[in-house]
């Protein structure tokens, strides 16, 4: 029995090293959080669960978007409802979360008004995750991007390149690079780095105002290493894509990566603080 206890103690020590020793060194901000697929029947209750998990993993800040929805074709009513849910969740934990506005270029006039309501006149500090039935290289994105530039709001754009083909209107990193070239003063975050990250990272190399985000794909070894090698640590950010994913599997890609701690610090939060600092300071939020 003593032997067994000693063994369990040893195992626990190993896990503790991995679980606490690493994370405690970093201020972790998560760029990609949703209320979708999270237990709880209100935004506040769902947020309690997210914060409980974030606390277990040492994650300091969550950037929330899209509310309960993962709809690719949201109506204006859905957009407004989900943005309201995000604002309720953020209000419940103002020291732990920021909001990012959910818009659709298919409803451009509404989206511009919604940006003003939620970002210019409201508490939100970013745009996206943008998932809609128009690819993000479409001209309807331009007025939204101009609004975001004016408010220093970074834009998170969904991208994938699925082996069996994308959904109609689903954007790729190629589309985002095209948009980014039209708006060199805007800051873009390429959600999922296209999923097929070995191609996605290469596509992003030329677009210096686009950061690669590693959320929402399997915790494969090597993704963060390649992104840092090809783009520089200043252009890679951690996100989880909870509740479709866990905080844990996605953070593991960074915490387990063979990169220096200085690079991990940037990827896990330093880059987001740099990127969001103007928008946060403008609203009097701490960075």
């Amino acid at each position: 029995m003593l032997h067994r206890r000693a063994f369990l103690g040893s195992a626990a020590a190993g896990l503790a090293y991995l679980a606490h020793g690493q994370q405690a060194k970093f201020r972790i901000w998560d760029i990609h959080c949703h209320l979708y697929n999270t237990p709880g029947d209100t935004p506040e209750k769902k947020m309690e669960v997210l914060i409980r998990c974030a606390d277990r993993l040492g994650i300091e800040r969550l950037i929330l978007s899209q509310g309960y929805s993962s709809a690719l074709h949201p109506t204006p009513d859905q957009l407004r409802e989900e943005n309201d849910r995000v604002m309720r969740a953020v209000r419940a934990f103002p020291d732990r979360a920021f909001g990012s506005v959910y818009l659709s270029p298919s409803h451009l006039e509404f989206s511009l008004a919604e940006f003003d309501r939620c970002v210019r006149d409201g508490p939100m500090v970013g745009v996206g995750e943008l998932e809609a039935d128009k690819r993000c290289n479409s001209p309807e994105l331009d007025p939204i991007v101009e609004r975001a530039i004016a408010m220093h709001a970074p834009i998170v754009q969904h991208t994938w390149m699925k082996a069996d083909g994308n959904e109609p209107g689903e954007s790729t990193p190629y589309d985002l690079v095209e948009l980014a070239k039209r708006h060199p003063r805007a800051n873009f975050i390429c959600a999922h780095t296209g999923g097929d990250w070995e191609r996605g990272i290469r596509i992003l190399r030329e677009a210096k105002n686009v950061l690669a985000e590693v959320a929402g794909l399997d915790p494969v070894s090597g993704v963060v290493e390649m992104a840092v090698r090809e783009l520089g640590a200043e252009r890679v950010v951690y996100g989880s894509d909870v509740g479709g994913r866990s905080f844990a599997s996605q953070a593991a890609k960074v915490l387990g990566a063979g990169i220096p701690d200085s690079a991990k610090e940037l990827v896990l939060g330093g880059n987001l603080r740099r990127l969001f600092a103007p928008a946060l300071r403008a609203k009097g939020y701490p960075v």
Binding site: R56, P219, G256
Partner: peptide
């Protein structure tokens, strides 16, 4: 699923889940 997956993924998922000790022992 190591080494294709980061070994830390499963470790951290156990931590995120806040399981009772008895359940953790079963799974581990």
């Amino acid at each position: 699923n190591a080494p294709l997956f980061s070994l830390q993924s499963a470790v951290l998922k156990m931590q995120e889940s806040g399981l009772a000790e008895a359940t953790k022992r079963l799974i581990f």
